[in-house]
Design a protein around this nucleic acid. Structure first.
Lengths: 321, 321
DNA sequence: TTGTAAGCGTTATCAT
DNA sequence: ATGATAACGCTTACAA
């Protein structure tokens, strides 16, 4: 395969000049530039990335760690990929499936300089293990974490959930059922939001059961079947995810109920499915989080101060409430 | 960051010796090996992968191209990843979302030697575009393709589908409804199998409608609702995917019907959900396909003849038929 | 505007 | 069993 020396020889110039042409340096005469470009074209030459990486001390590849696939994660990854691309970085995805060793592999690749940085969406190893790798390159996370060495683009779910509850209150709903997802800091924040909410408006708890670990369409369908059977029904359901809301909505409609006439339904995340089914939901700026994550990484790589988006939740009002 | 020279200096040996220790060469005395390893440990040294890649002319990274996520693809990718790992290769995933440029990126990385090879699960660009990159490294595909330069681990769906139909016939089913997925060579093969099947057994076509583009749980639910409304019902449903079969099964049970007493249901792919719901299905050895794909790549890289698994469909009999 | 040459951190071929 | 040293293909001072 052709290399820079061969191009130089054939074009009758030095390798430095060829390098300048490739990297669009100024101070190359139009004539030589043209001649070099011609030879490059003829020989179907591409610079060897490994040589480049070795010389530059970086690969321009950023690793992204997640434990598994989900709609939300995928749109986050897509946004991250897009902005990384824009600045000439490639993205390498590590799906760990909860396997610590697979995550360690990614961390080791950071250590051995195959990766310039790591975005840790959902970790598997303990934080102190991950933290011990920060000396090899920037690591940024999406999870809730307060750390000097691992910046986070986490958003406090308390605020988002409260926003939704306030919205439902303003629309006149008073008997709200909460459907939570997996027990974690996020869910805890949401539970706290609901407690503060009923206190603030002097609402009594209606004694509805606590739905936990509900995150899929099928989970939503289950909740819907519960709702149908109740004598004293909630007048609104605030869901952990759009998927759950979607499951409830479609299952209720299938059973002949009307949304929002019989019950209001509110999703969370503003994913495609919420749009598709006209679900009111809480918009969560994952795209901006992704961009912030990238900008933080870029800032750390170039020791510059990154410009960040401010992150805010929004109610997206559609026709399910 | 420490490099091999520093280790050499500190250990009082040459870089060659350090390299030998790292790469587990024989002919290093136990004493020096120990001393070198000590220094390596102390300095937290790891060899720089870029230097290695440059020297060796390969990165030991294989790219995998797919257009989007699906259960089947994910288990294929997992198997591929596992065997690649075993031979010291890393895997870089490219989700193209049908974007030609994103796919080209992967191809370009092969060209610039950041990738040693490419497994193309689901292509986006035309085959001749992809084919033009085979000169830069091995490209193997999972799709149906007859080509000198791009080997394929494709399996003829005709056989698998026929196997399922024969099984249903043997169980006494005579009024079979087919639910196909997206129109492609695979579906065409299945349709052909069904035509040959009714001819072989002298069955008359029951005039059931043609279900096409059904591949999800929700599609299956739709089919189930169609089935419920029929006077002259099919006695078995042969599905394009386990997801569709799962949707039909659960929706029918929800409506009070019994499977397999009222109708037999057969999936395809033998994914987790088939196991979960006790669905009879056609096992499709994706793991072996993945291993074959890797072995072909490995063979091409080492110009050796790969050992391949023979690929066969199997009926996995469970309780839905 | 162009060329020379010194690295980047390894591995591998010869010597010894 | 160990050491010199020449690659691998590129970038970038520094010179001219």
């Amino acid at each position: 395969m052709a290399n820079i020396q061969e191009i130089a020889r054939l074009a009758g110039v030095s390798t430095a000049t060829v390098s300048r042409v490739i990297n669009r340096h100024p101070y190359v005469s139009d004539l030589t530039r043209e001649r070099v470009l011609n030879i490059i074209e003829q020989l179907d030459y591409v610079p060897n990335s490994n040589a480049k990486s070795l010389k530059k001390g970086m690969t321009r590849i950023i690793g992204v760690i997640a434990v598994s696939y989900s709609t939300l994660l995928m749109s986050l990854i897509r946004s991250f990929h897009t902005i990384a691309q824009k600045y000439g970085f490639n993205v390498m995805l590590f799906m760990t499936n909860g396997n610590c060793d697979k995550e360690l592999e990614a961390l080791e690749m950071l250590r051995s300089k195959q990766l310039d940085a790591l975005l840790c969406l959902l970790r598997t190893n303990e934080w102190d293990v991950i933290e011990s790798y920060t000396k090899y390159g920037p690591i940024v996370t999406w999870q809730r974490l307060v750390s000097d060495t691992i910046p986070s683009v986490f958003m406090d779910q308390y605020q988002g959930y409260m926003l939704g509850l306030e919205y439902l209150y303003a629309k006149g709903y008073r008997k709200i059922l909460n459907v939570y997802s997996s027990k974690g800091l996020n869910t805890l924040g949401r539970i706290r939001a609901y407690e503060d909410f009923i206190q603030k408006y002097g609402l009594k708890d209606k004694g509805f059961p606590q739905f936990h670990n509900k995150m899929t369409i099928r989970d939503g369908e289950e909740v819907a079947r519960w709702w149908i059977k109740q004598a004293d029904k909630p007048d609104a359901i605030s869901c952990s995810t759009d998927e759950v809301a979607a499951g409830i909505l479609t299952e209720l409609r299938r059973a002949g109920f009307s949304v929002p006439d019989d019950v209001g339904i509110m999703g969370f995340d503003n994913t495609d499915i919420a749009h598709l089914l006209d679900l009111t939901t809480i918009h969560y700026p994952v795209d901006k989080q992704a961009e912030n994550a990238f900008n933080i990484i870029k800032g750390m790589l170039e020791q510059a101060v990154p410009k960040l988006h401010s992150l805010e939740f929004n109610v997206v009002e559609r026709r399910s409430t």
